[in-house]
Every structure is written in C-alpha cells, then in structure tokens.
Write a protein that binds this DNA or RNA. Structure first.
Lengths: 136, 136
DNA sequence: CGCCAAGGTGACGTTAAGGTAAACCGTGAC
DNA sequence: GTCACGGTTTACCTTAACGTCACCTTGGCG
C-alpha cells in the first residue's frame, strides 16, 4: 500500500518503500538530491521526497549519474515556470543518454559476437583434443 | 609493420604498438600479468610479452577484470601440459562471462525501451505545450 | 530511573585501473 | 662537462556510490 499524499515517513519506512539503505538516503541528502523535513534531528520524508526519490532511482536505471540527476531535478524546482524549455532540455539529455546506451549496446553486441567466435574455436579445439585422446 | 619474432621492444615501442601508456605496462607488470626482460633497469618486451598483452587487451574488451585475466594466463604457463583441462576451464569461464554479458544486454535493452517510452511521453507533452503557446 | 531501539553525525574504507608528480639514473652527443 | 632523452622507482590522487564503524542523542516504556 503506497502512503497517502500527506503521510510523512521515517527513514526506515522510506527505506522499506524503495528498497534502499538509510546510508543511501543520507547520502542523497548530502548530495542535495533530497531535502526531507526535520522533526528535531530526525528526518521526515513527505510526498515530494518520495516523488524525487522515484525519479532518482529511475534516472539511475537509465545510467545517469547522481550529479546529472541533481542538475535535472534542480532545474525543475529552481524556476518552476519554464516548463517548455525544461522539458525540452530534459528531452535532449535523454536523447543523448539514449544514444550513449545504444552505442554501448552495439559494443556489447560486438564483444558478444567476438567472444562467441572464440568459443566456437575453443569448442573445436577441445573436441579435437578429446578425439585424439580417445584414439590412443 | 609488426615486429619480427625475436625483436625486443622498448617500453615506448610497446606503447606505440598497442596504444597504451607506459604506466599501463608497468601496472600490468606489478599485477604480474607481464614479465619483460631487463637490460640494466630498462624493460625489454619480447614476443611472449606481446602475445600476452594481446590476450590481456582482448580479455579487457570482453569485460574480464585484470585479476580474471591473470588467473587464466597463470593457468596456462604454470603447468603447460594440461591442455585439455585448461582449455575446458577457459571455455567455461568464457561461457559464464558470455551469460553475464547477455544479461547485461537484456537489462540495457529494457532500459532503452523504458527511456524511449518516457521520451515519447515527453515529446507528446512538449507538442501539447507548443500548440497551446501557438494558440494564444 | 534506567534502558533500548531508532536515529543522528563524522570519518574512514572500498574497488578498478590506471594518472600524475617528484626525484633519480645512464648514456650518447656536442 | 653537461644537456637532453628515455627510462626507473615511489608514492599519492582520482571517481562513484555508497559500506562500515565509533560514538552521541532522544523518545518512549516499564
């Protein structure tokens, strides 16, 4: 069950909800990706923090660095009015990242193909050794 | 022009031949991946070193760590007689690595697909904003 | 009052594969 | 002699994203 919009979560609850460690949340906060409320010294995570964390984790899945993510997030809440320009910028960054990922995939494909070729060679050599051994 | 079998290369020549830095060659030596001859204190790289370095760089392209590569290389020249067993072992490691690479590729594909979906969404939103702006 | 669990801070460690800097050596040329 | 060049060693630095530890605080409960 996801928390209601106004719920404030403790760090533990937050961790359970997103499957991260407390260290991670404090780390993100140190990097200015999150800014939970405080009750005394204790952190309280609200709706906004949950939304941000969701974006952070998604960004990570896409291979963005935390620094990249911070900049995007910052852009959105430093001047929440330039929606079109911001969306366009985000889109451009995403396109760039997509191109990177596709290059990476191409390299990976190449390496996979090359490795498979080596393995075919190895399989042949292995078979030859074994039939030679059997023939003795 | 590749060097003749008996040629001994200086570290510079080696670097030029394989497009690596001296630091890299010394680093590999510290990690016991290479063991060039010495004339005085200077390193001299022979045929064997060139063959090993070629394997090292190939291994890296496949995403093996230097430590993995060292173990494979070691296996081959610590007891150069168990050819079948060694080849089989190498083959097994390659298969494992291939599986890893294919998993990685699948994840990458998924991330690419997800990112593309986000981008479609973004493109739509962007178009909506623009036509709204045009309508004013 | 005493204690525990949950929370906090600060500091240092980890990993891989080198980069970078400082200081030294040997030798062939001039 | 000394200059430059190519080489050597040792040692510390880098990056990312946390993990781990030691040592406080604080709130609640019996």
């Amino acid at each position: 069950m996801s928390p209601a919009r106004e719920d404030l979560l403790s760090i533990r609850q937050m961790c359970a909800l997103f499957d991260v460690t407390p260290r991670t949340l404090r780390f993100y906060e140190a990097k200015e990706l999150l800014a939970p409320l405080r009750r005394g010294t204790a952190r309280l995570y609200g709706y906004r923090d949950r939304a941000r964390l969701k974006l952070i984790l998604r960004g990570k899945r896409f291979g963005f660095s935390l620094e990249d993510i911070r900049q995007l997030l910052d852009m959105y809440d430093r001047n929440p009015g330039q929606q079109e320009a911001q969306l366009a910028r985000t889109y451009a960054l995403a396109a760039e990242r997509l191109a990177q990922m596709e290059r990476q995939r191409a390299e990976l494909d190449e390496a996979i193909a090359e490795l498979k070729a080596e393995m075919d060679w190895g399989a042949t050599a292995l078979a030859a050794l074994r039939s030679a051994a059997a023939a003795e």
